[in-house]
Deep mutational scan, measured.
Amino acid sequence: QTVQFNGLEYHFPNPEEAEKFAKKVAKELGGEVRVKDGRWQID
């Protein structure tokens, strides 16, 4: 599972970890999490 933001990609072994990370980062950055092409993106 991949999380993308600021032009970087973070890879996680399972979707739960990816989701948790994506939501944490979005909260800290005040961004929005969305899934695109099977990847988590933070904008």
Rank of each mutant, 00 (worst) to 15 (best):
Q1M: 13
Q1D: 10
Q1A: 14
Q1W: 15
T2P: 01
T2F: 08
T2W: 13
V3A: 01
V3G: 01
V3C: 02
Q4V: 15
Q4F: 14
Q4R: 12
Q4H: 13
F5K: 01
F5N: 01
N6T: 01
G7H: 05
G7T: 02
L8R: 13
L8V: 13
E9S: 08
E9P: 00
E9F: 09
E9W: 08
Y10C: 15
Y10A: 04
Y10S: 01
H11I: 10
H11M: 07
H11F: 13
H11E: 07
H11A: 06
H11G: 04
F12C: 14
F12P: 02
F12K: 00
F12Q: 00
F12Y: 01
P13D: 14
P13M: 11
P13A: 12
P13S: 13
P13G: 09
N14H: 04
N14C: 14
P15M: 10
P15V: 12
P15G: 09
P15K: 12
E16V: 10
E17D: 12
E17S: 08
E17W: 06
E17N: 03
A18R: 00
A18G: 01
E19F: 07
E19W: 06
E19D: 05
K20G: 07
K20T: 07
K20M: 09
F21E: 03
F21D: 04
F21V: 05
A22L: 06
K23V: 09
K23L: 08
K24H: 12
K24A: 14
K24D: 10
V25F: 05
V25I: 14
A26N: 02
A26K: 03
A26P: 00
A26S: 06
A26C: 14
A26H: 03
A26V: 06
A26D: 00
K27S: 11
K27V: 08
K27L: 12
E28P: 02
E28Q: 12
E28G: 07
L29Q: 08
L29F: 13
L29N: 08
L29T: 13
G30K: 07
G30V: 04
G30D: 06
G31W: 12
G31S: 08
G31V: 15
E32S: 14
E32Y: 11
E32H: 13
E32N: 11
V33T: 07
V33A: 15
V33C: 15
R34L: 09
R34V: 13
R34D: 05
R34T: 13
R34E: 06
R34S: 13
R34W: 08
R34Y: 12
V35T: 06
K36T: 11
D37I: 00
G38Y: 00
G38K: 03
G38D: 06
G38W: 00
R39E: 07
W40Y: 08
W40H: 05
W40V: 05
Q41Y: 15
Q41W: 15
Q41R: 06
I42M: 03
I42H: 04
I42Q: 03
I42Y: 03
I42A: 04
D43L: 15
D43S: 12
D43T: 14
D43M: 14
